[in-house]
Design a protein around this nucleic acid. Structure first.
Lengths: 128, 128
DNA sequence: TTGACATGCAGTAAAAAGACTGCATTATAT
DNA sequence: ATATAATGCAGTCTTTTTACTGCATGTCAA
């Protein structure tokens, strides 16, 4: 998973994935068409993408064809991203809006500064 | 979006997000508890996370409370990741397995090396 | 077989990222 | 008021990342 996040961090590599989504089986030379990058640099990007399991490579004679493998991205989406996005977005939106209106509710009430779930819980709405 | 991917690339920052998912409103000091990182370093990580919109910060006196904002992650999941994962995973799996069994179908058929959609299309199954 | 093509590998240099120390600022508590 | 606590900011150093050049390897086509 570490490798996947690293690989996705670079815009050049994300662009490669986009290209491969549009037309699979592109060679290295085709991948750098329209860019000013040298093939040696692109090759290293491809290496990282492959190590992360994000692309599948198939040799055809002297040509190296690249195929997108969406599975690791799906894994991220399912195992790591979903736990933030699906469950809690609405709760956060509620909180955020409430905070913008009365950002210092506890201080205003002159309550002592408490720590712990009562105060810090992300899902305890302001109106509680 | 660039900032979000960069922010997610570092394991320290992902760990911070995980901590904030578990207990929201943690202060900077609480965020580095259990690690050997100095608060100044953690502070820079927090800055990046905030610039990426991944956390929301609320000052409470001299304490800085941090809250996870899952929305950017949801955006990634929806706009960028889903286009790889949901639509095409099954198609890829089929292709991958087929490739592993007969990885050079075109070459074996002694066809000329063609380029373009006919050959390179990711979604054109081997059995076509 | 030989020349052109697609790519790999090694080495270098520049840029970015990450972590540290030291000092400054603001808030709390006595 | 003053000491302590939570944090920010600036500067330096190290590591990592990224791009480049030059040369090597293997494949295709005449």
């Amino acid at each position: 998973m570490e490798l996947v996040f690293k690989a996705l961090a670079d815009p050049t590599r994300r662009n490669m994935l986009d290209k491969l989504l549009g037309s699979a089986g592109l060679t290295l030379g085709e991948l750098i068409e329209g860019t000013d990058m040298r093939r040696q640099s692109a090759s290293k990007h491809v290496q990282l993408l492959e190590e992360a399991g994000l692309i599948h490579i198939e040799w055809q004679g002297r040509e190296k064809k690249h195929f997108l493998n969406p599975i690791p991205i799906r894994e991220i989406s399912r195992r790591w991203l979903d736990k933030y996005s699906e469950r809690q977005t609405d709760a956060l939106l509620t909180m955020k809006q409430a905070l913008e209106e009365q950002p210092l509710s506890n201080a205003e009430k002159n309550e002592p500064l408490k720590r712990g779930p009562e105060v810090t819980s992300f899902f305890t709405p302001i109106e509680d």
